[in-house]
């Protein structure tokens, strides 16, 4: 058995254990612990997805979904920061769009987790249609991205105690796998009174 196989089985096992610990925490009403466990599990999910992406076995399961549903599901969480507000704006969101919901959810969860680490008071997640793209933006009021992060596309930044930067690499990869008629998805980072993470998916 290869290391990759053993790693996959181990991750699977650990996630099951995490799920059962989360179950206990939730039954006690301990939402903070539940949230912390989910974040750990998400890290493991990213690791698995990264492995698949590297071996070209990450296949998209693209279907039509309602962005508003996804965003309202994502904003039910606090991402470990009960002290900040997480608002959403889906007024200009299209009713349907084509994407792999599981992977896009993973990207956005990661973006929200990052934002919650740096936000002072609030995070805004919004969706709208712009020039045949679905644009989903995660904005915080923190210090913003560093210059290196803004300049270099493949920058494995935020390799800090806070995270590995894997999330951003994966986000770029998954966005780029969303293609249709010469158009391709992408991630754009900018600063505007805080960090702005934009995910663009082609129609």
């Amino acid at each position: 058995m290869s290391f990759a196989n053993i790693a996959a089985l181990t991750i699977h096992d650990v996630k099951n254990k995490l799920a059962s610990i989360a179950g206990v925490a939730e039954s006690r009403g301990d939402q903070d612990t539940v949230q912390a466990i989910i974040e750990v599990a998400d890290t493991l999910t990213r690791l698995l997805v990264f492995y698949r992406a590297e071996h070209d076995t990450l296949y998209l399961n693209i279907n039509s979904h309602t962005p508003e549903d996804l965003i309202s599901e994502l904003t039910t969480n606090h991402y470990g920061r009960a002290d900040i507000s997480i608002a959403s704006n889906t007024n200009e969101a299209p009713l349907m769009w084509m994407y792999d919901e599981l992977l896009i959810r993973m990207i956005l969860e990661n973006a929200l987790q990052n934002a919650s680490r740096f936000a002072k008071n609030r995070i805004l997640i919004s969706a709208r249609e712009i020039e045949a793209y679905l644009e989903i933006t995660v904005q915080d009021d923190g210090p913003g991205f560093t210059l290196n992060q803004l300049v270099d596309n493949d920058y494995h930044a935020r390799v800090t105690q806070e995270g590995t930067g894997l999330g951003l690499v994966l986000a770029r990869h998954i966005a780029a796998l969303h293609t249709n008629n010469q158009s391709q998805g992408r991630i754009e980072l900018s600063n505007q009174n805080g960090a702005v993470f934009r995910l663009l998916l082609p129609a």
Partner: peptide
């Protein structure tokens, strides 16, 4: 639908 473990009761409800 698919649910990825672990998930909250709230996630289950929305789905």
């Amino acid at each position: 639908d698919y649910l990825l473990k672990p998930f909250t009761a709230e996630t289950l409800r929305t789905r």
